[in-house]
Design a protein around this nucleic acid. Sequence first.
DNA 1: TCAGCTCACACTTTTGAATAGC
DNA 2: AGCTATTCAAAAGTGTGAGCTG
Length: 688
Amino acid sequence: MMLGVDVYPSLALGPQCLGDRFYRVSQDREPAPHLPRFPSTCDVVAKPLPHTRLAAPLPVHRGEQAAQAEKDDVKIDLENSSLWKQFSSVGTEMIITKKGRRMFPGIKLKLSGLNPTLRYILLLDIIPMDNSRYRFQGGGWQAVGAAEARLPDRVFIHPDSPATGAHWQSRTISFHYAKLTNNTLDARGHIILHSLHRYQPRVHVIEARDMLSWGGGQHSFVFPETQFVTVTAYQNNRITELKINSNPFAKGFRDEGMNSKKQRDARQKRKLADMAETVTTENCDPCDSTQSLPTPEMTGAHLQALALASLHRLPPEPSCRFTSEETPFQDSLVVPEEPLELGQAFMASQIPDIRLTISAGMQETTESECTDTLIESSGSLSEAAFPSTFPACETNSPSFAPLAEPSTFSSNPPDTSMDYPAIHSSSPILSVTSPTNSPSMQQSAFTFPTPPPSSTSSPSYHTLKLSNQEPESPFPPCQPKDQMSLLMTRDDDLSGCHNSPTEQSSEAFIYPNALPSNPDPQPHVGAPQAPFAFPPPVQNLSFPNQALHHSNLPQPAQAPNLSTAFPLPSSCLPFQSSSCFPSTPHPQNLSNTPSSYTSMELGTIPQFPGGPYRTDVMLHHPSLLPQLEPNHPIPPPTPAIYPAFSSYPLRLRQDPHPSLTIPLRHLYRHQHTHAQPSFLDMSARAIF
DNA sequence: TCAGCTCACACTTTTGAATAGC
DNA sequence: AGCTATTCAAAAGTGTGAGCTG
């Protein structure tokens, strides 16, 4: 049996949470009309579903009131925010390889506001910032065309999941195991991204009793400084420098390292000198009269060239100048007014060799060291405060004009004590996408295996779905052979699904009897009003006989423009911009103080009845699968403070294909090989 | 021709098994 | 026998640069 959790991102992307500043910019810049908004090959025609109501969370160990109160209080800090900001100010690049590459900097979080006794699942996904392809030109990133077709959006589940709130809050949470790949046929569960595209990581905190019983609420967070451009080779020398200076694994490439340019050149010079010497020696061999040898002139010229090559290279022309004239990374971004939507997702937490017994301090040491090293070794860097180099996003022309209100990190480094905008939605209705501008939506899915059902031979599909898509599509669905085949043969099987919006929905086994939710979106209270209003789009999360409640999020058009590095437009934040962007950049502002984000609950997920937290029981027993809760009351909508960031709808699925064992393999391996008796014990694992 | 990608390479860190000492 | 500390080899994570590809 396979349990799949499919994610339906009918999401306006991260930028929307950044407020009206981006919106204003986007107003000035119409997205390039030739660029497809949603380049996925399997986009789904977005017909807003009638709202589907999800049962409110059923707190296990506490009253509902307390649960609701806590849900609104979840906060998350990006612990290595300063490091991210260092990179972001330059224009973060992330290497992606076929085998998968870790992110650096990694995403290190500190959670608070969780109920210590409840269990949560932490997810990481990465969504495209826009639908442009980028090229590094003139020292900055510029959009040069339309994005590649959307790839299946995969979600990385933190290996500790599910764990108690106390567990998550007692340590730094790191997603350093997540790997990025450009292999569209990747079967390792890595997050698949396109090279030379811009992405924004997101973190989701989902209340869950265990892997099968997700519910109680969902909180999603975006850290604007963590957006990056994917590359197969670094384009910006400053990024390379930062990576080398920050990443311990790259220590060898530092000036003092054995793999530094100087050392490598010297090595190569010695090597060739040895070769030349050997050749000379052999040439002197009176017995070898047949060998054609280089003339002394040739050898000398060669060595001379080597000597020249061994000289320390002149520093390249700085790709990022510290000039205010340069288009700032964060402000040059122009996110299309339409929200981008995620494509089909697949859980990416199944890194095969993930080790659950990893030393607790590994990543902390690594990155704290990185930060320290960075700050120490590149103090000038911090002081100088790079202007960001991300270009404007899409415009009508490939090049981008500076924004009207340029704000660079160099001139306005964010206050380290500031709170970032939260993505919050706890109210029943979530308005996510604009039917006008966002005619399609994609589904994201991630799956993980579960033991076969104990009592049923015919697979059943339990679906948690949050979608604004019409369940009935005019397009014939592409029937995946199974989850893996869908993933592995995506390019083939799905290629025929171009313009077949229901291709991905074919995987969406929607619970029957899903009740339509309140079709009337609640007006968002406290959120800035979008300068123009879309018809209230609806994002639905359908559960069996349950209703999902979304907050009425601000329209995505509110923040279509993400000022990259440290966008944090004051207009979207509940604090003064001055607090966000101190006038004087200083390294201290960049370190030791995480960026704090409060969450927006995006929807509630039903709390499923369950027995003891015995993994084997939970995963095998059909009765512990999501249950219908037809008459659960709908909690009142919670006014969202910040512009909305729509969440994934979640879909749980039992998959009949036992071959899909990659996701959550760590979970089982850990359980069985380490004799973990239950999920309760898993919370004590030291993973970080 | 060239931008972008792949891969081997050298180096470093991490991990876990083996071993020694108490 | 059991625990802890140390050692060491393998695995994994880095950027580099040559070569390949379209």
